[in-house]
Amino acid sequence: MNNKVLNNRAWLLVLPMLVLVAFSAIIPLMTVVNYSVQDVLGPNARFFTGTEWFHSILNDASLRNAFVRQILFSLTILAIQVPLGIGIALIMPKRGWQASAVLILITLPLLIPWNVVGSIWQIFTRGDIGLMGWGLRELGINYNITRNAGDAWATIILMDVWHWTPLVAMLCYSGLRSIPEAYYQAARIDRASKWAIFRYIQLPKLTNVLVIAVLLRFMHSFMIYAEPFVLTGGGPGSSTTFLSQSLATMAIGQQDLGPSAAFSIIYFLVILLVSWVFYTTIMHMQKDKNPHGGA
C-alpha cells in the first residue's frame, strides 16, 4: 500500500472550465438533440416527430455515399501523410540555423487560412491561367477538375497533403528530438543498421506523438469543409461532396433543421466512436509494453 492521499477536491478547480464548456458545447448539443426529434417551423409551431428524421437520414442514399467518400478520403490522407510526415522529420536538419530555416519553411502552409488554401489551389489548377493546370494541359494530359472526378479527387488529396503533412512532420520532429543521445550510442555500439534504429528506437519513441497526429488528422479530415468547397464545390456532380458539406447544404441551404440535427448527432457519434477506438487501442498498446507506467 502506498500512503498517497487521494484528494478529489482538486476537481473543483475544473469547475470554471466546465461552466465554459457547458455554454459553448453541452447546451448547444442538447438543443441539437431536441431539434432532432421535432419539426420546428417557428417559435410556436413545432411537432414531435420521434425517430422519423433518424430513419430517413440513415436510409438516405446520397448521404451514405458521402459517408463512404468521407471514410475513403480520411484513410487516404492518413496513409499518405503519416509515413510522409515521419520521413520528412527524419531527414530534417537537427541543429544550427538550417534546422530553424527548414522548420519555418515547412510550417508556412499551416499558417494559411483554409478558404485561402482552397482559392490558391483553385487558381493553381485552372487550365487557362493556373501554373499546374496549364502545365499539365501543355504536356498533353487531359486534366480538368470541374469535369473529371478522378482529377478532382487527386487534387483535393494533393491539397490536403500539402496543407497538413507539415503538422505531422513537426510533431514527429519534436518526438525525435526528445530521444536521448544514449539510445543512439547504444545502437552504434551494437552496430545497428539505420532500419533497426528506426524500427526499434525511433518508431516506438514516436508512438505518443503519432497518436496525437493520427487523431488530429483524422478529426480534421473527417470534418473537412472549406477547402473542397472552394476548390470543387463538391463536384463534378457530387463526387467530392463530403459529410460536412452535405450537412451545410441541408441545414443552411434548405433550412431542414430537424433532419440536419439528426444528421449532426450521427456524425458526432461516429467521430466519438472512431476517436475513442484510436485512443484506447494506442494507449492500450503502450500499457502492454511497459506495465509499470511511464513513457
Binding site: M30, T31, V33, N34, V37, Q38, R46, G50
Partner: peptide, 15 residues
C-alpha cells in the same frame, strides 16, 4: 429555456 425547444422524451433522456 424556450429556445432549446425541450420535449418530454429528451428531458427524460438528459435527466
Amino acid at each position: 429555456m424556450t429556445w432549446m425547444v425541450w420535449t418530454t422524451p429528451t428531458a427524460i433522456f438528459f435527466s
